[in-house]
Simulated scan of single mutants.
Amino acid sequence: MQPNPTLDQLQVLVAVADTGSFSAAGRKLNRAQSVISYAIANLEAQLGLRLFEREGTREPTLTTEGKAMLTDARRMVGVLSDIRARAEGLTRGLEAELVIAVDVTTPSPALTTVLAAFEAEFPSVGLRLNVGTLGIVSEQLLSHGANLSIGGQPVAISDELVAVRIGDASMTPVAAPRHPLAAYKGRVPLSVVREHIQLVISDVSQMTKGKDFGVFAYRTWRMTDMSIKRDLILSGLGWGGLPTWMILEDVAAGRLAVLDLEPYPERPYQLHAFYRADSPPGPAASWLIERFKQELLKVCSTLPVVPQRGASAA
């Protein structure tokens, strides 16, 4: 018959290894030393391995086999701790999992910081992150595909959604320095802007079907990924608006030039957290909303002002 160690025996093994003695492990687990010794003896008998050297030493010392088994024991005890934490969280209303829909314009430095803190604060809560554009974020929330969404103003106002303002951001029109719009002297009129390919983030949801936002050129290239859009602008294939937080290093290094366009100035927008009115956020989702407020405030307060070509030329 295969050995079948109990979780209790594995906890005792970890306690003895961590404390360095049977008596100290007993105090840690609130058990008699004899109970600790008996549990280890039974575990060794089941496994057919000697886990501790007891002879010739004042305190038990892990054998080579014991060290190997300790790694597995720690993993199993860790799983047990996760189960306990999850059960405790569920009894007080903590979500088992959160699905968050995030708009591509959300500052990624703030998103990364928030999610790292979330993992430390709620290790038992599972997380799924869906990144999309425009209507996708609202669509996922309205269709019960997400518990929470982060982004700008929804493309369709609905009484079903509750909005909580969490910060501000902006879009800035840019192009590669060698692009004709970057070399234009003075403010670029709409008639000239229209003649150059505009790179546009496209929404694959049905919520914005037949609608365009901030599109001025006769020719457009459309994509769903903001990073690809940035790469194409850097290559000189077209111009377009990018989140201001995303372009700061490129502008400072001379890889991108801020455009002074008559129809497209820098566009500020508010960032919101949205949730369904019939599904208010639980403890973890509420924590996320408040933490996003803190981190977005930090990001926005540290962003330098992007120079406008028109202002410097005037």
Rank of each mutant, 00 (worst) to 15 (best):
Val174Cys: 10
Ala175Pro: 02
Pro177Lys: 01
Arg178Gln: 14
Pro180Leu: 04
Leu181His: 10
Ala182Cys: 09
Ala182Val: 00
Ala182Met: 06
Ala182Asp: 06
Tyr184Thr: 13
Tyr184Glu: 14
Gly186Pro: 02
Gly186Gln: 03
Arg187Tyr: 00
Arg187Ile: 07
Val188Lys: 04
Val188Ile: 05
Pro189Ile: 00
Ser191Tyr: 08
Ser191His: 03
Val192Cys: 09
Val192Lys: 15
Val193Leu: 08
Glu195Thr: 08
Ile197Asp: 14
Gln198Glu: 11
Gln198His: 04
Leu199His: 12
Ser202Tyr: 10
Val204His: 06
Val204Ala: 07
Val204Leu: 13
Ser205Cys: 08
Gln206Met: 13
Met207Thr: 03
Lys209Arg: 14
Gly210Arg: 11
Gly210Leu: 06
Lys211Gly: 01
Lys211Leu: 12
Phe213Tyr: 10
Gly214Met: 04
Gly214Val: 01
Gly214Phe: 11
Val215Tyr: 00
Val215Gln: 05
Ala217Tyr: 08
Tyr218Gly: 05
Tyr218Glu: 06
Tyr218His: 08
Arg219Lys: 13
Arg219Pro: 00
Arg219Gly: 06
Trp221Cys: 11
Trp221Ser: 12
Arg222Gln: 12
Arg222Phe: 00
Arg222Gly: 07
Met223Arg: 13
Thr224Arg: 13
Thr224Met: 14
Met226Pro: 08
Lys229Ser: 11
Asp231Glu: 15
Asp231Arg: 15
Leu232Tyr: 15
Ile233Ser: 07
Leu234Ile: 05
Leu234Met: 12
Leu234Thr: 11
Ser235Ile: 05
Ser235Arg: 15
Gly236Phe: 04
Leu237Lys: 15
Gly238Met: 11
Gly238Leu: 02
Trp239Leu: 02
Trp239His: 10
Trp239Phe: 11
Trp239Arg: 04
Gly240Ala: 06
Gly240Lys: 08
Gly241Ile: 07
Gly241Ala: 14
Gly241Leu: 07
Leu242His: 09
Pro243Glu: 06
Pro243Ser: 14
Thr244Val: 07
Thr244Trp: 02
Trp245Leu: 13
Met246Ile: 02
Met246Gln: 13
Met246Asp: 14
Met246Trp: 00
Ile247Arg: 09
Ile247Ser: 13
Val251Glu: 00
Ala252Gly: 09
Ala253Ile: 02
Gly254Trp: 03
Arg255Asp: 12
Val258Asp: 03
Val258Ser: 11
Val258Tyr: 07
Leu259Val: 09
Leu259His: 03
Leu261Met: 07
Glu262Cys: 05
Pro263Asn: 08
Pro263His: 02
Pro263Ile: 02
Pro265Trp: 04
Glu266Gly: 01
Arg267Ser: 05
Arg267Tyr: 02
Pro268Met: 05
Pro268Gly: 06
Tyr269Met: 10
Leu271Glu: 13
Leu271Ser: 10
Leu271Val: 07
Leu271Arg: 08
Ala273Arg: 10
Ala273Leu: 03
Ala273Met: 03
Phe274Ile: 00
Ala277Met: 00
Asp278Ser: 01
Ser279Arg: 15
Gly282Trp: 14
Pro283Ala: 07
Pro283Ile: 11
Ala284Gly: 07
Ala285Ser: 12
Ala285Met: 10
